[in-house]
């Protein structure tokens, strides 16, 4: 059974839980799934086993607490400690795939915008690679910091009796706003440095299309 089928089966079976057990199990599920370094297949397999167990126990009136104990976080940590780590070979294509996807779409949007705007306004299609790299670095840093921060926020809301989420939402919004402001300031005030070249709308569209097409081809090849 592959990961996707397990996740779908998990979603289906979770609906059979009582509201109380569902809340209990979901905390466990989110906490363990947030550990990205673990092998995805093994993670989903053990989550399915725990869910099956909880469902069988539920039929004779047992709760999640009866089965997995009072210290759910401690229990989840025990499970995590025993799960095998995912191999770096799996992680690298995943991240590089995301980056290539973003770059591809950016180039296509840029090409398309320049094409549409050029009859109405003067478009500057000169590109300064050094400046672009600095901005990309700032954006990447912001994205990574935000993701880690939000994951920590989510983790903080788990395993609590009463949950008030608005505080966490405010915090997430705030870091988003600060990050965006930093990026816009960098873009505005960063001097254009280093060599430059013309990168016309059609070249931009073409490069973007090639990148997206090669991602698509690789996906198709990996399917079987």
């Amino acid at each position: 059974m592959n990961v996707k089928a397990l996740v779908e089966e998990n979603n289906r079976k979770r609906e059979l839980l009582t509201p109380e057990n569902e809340a209990y199990y979901s905390d466990l599920l989110i906490y363990i799934r947030l550990k990205f370094r673990l092998s995805e297949l093994h993670t989903e397999e053990i989550l399915m086993e725990l869910l099956d167990h909880l469902l069988e126990g539920q039929q004779i009136g047992k709760t999640g607490k009866d089965i997995f104990g009072d210290d759910l976080k401690g229990y989840a940590d025990e499970i995590i400690e025993q799960l095998p780590k995912s191999k770096k070979r799996e992680l690298f294509p995943f991240i590089s795939g995301i980056v290539a996807n973003i770059v591809g779409w950016l180039l296509i949007i840029r090409g398309f915008l320049f094409l549409v705007l050029s009859p109405f306004t003067a478009v500057n299609s000169t590109v300064y690679p050094v400046t672009v790299i600095v901005i990309a670095f700032v954006i990447a840093t912001f994205v990574i910091v935000t993701i880690i921060y939000i994951l920590k926020l989510i983790e903080g809301t788990l395993f609590k009796e009463k949950q008030s989420k608005w505080k966490e939402i405010m915090k997430a919004g705030l870091i988003g706003a600060i990050g965006m402001a930093l990026i816009l300031l960098t873009v505005k005030f960063l001097p254009k440095i280093g060599p430059s070249f013309e990168f016309s709308w059609w070249a931009s569209l073409l490069t973007g299309a090639v990148i997206l097409a090669s991602i698509y081809v690789r996906k198709q090849m990996n399917k079987d």
Binding site: E49, H53, D66, I67, Y75, I79, E81
Partner: peptide, 8 residues
């Protein structure tokens, strides 16, 4: 043995 103990 609490039932969950067997999984780790």
């Amino acid at each position: 043995v609490s039932e969950g103990t067997i999984y780790p």
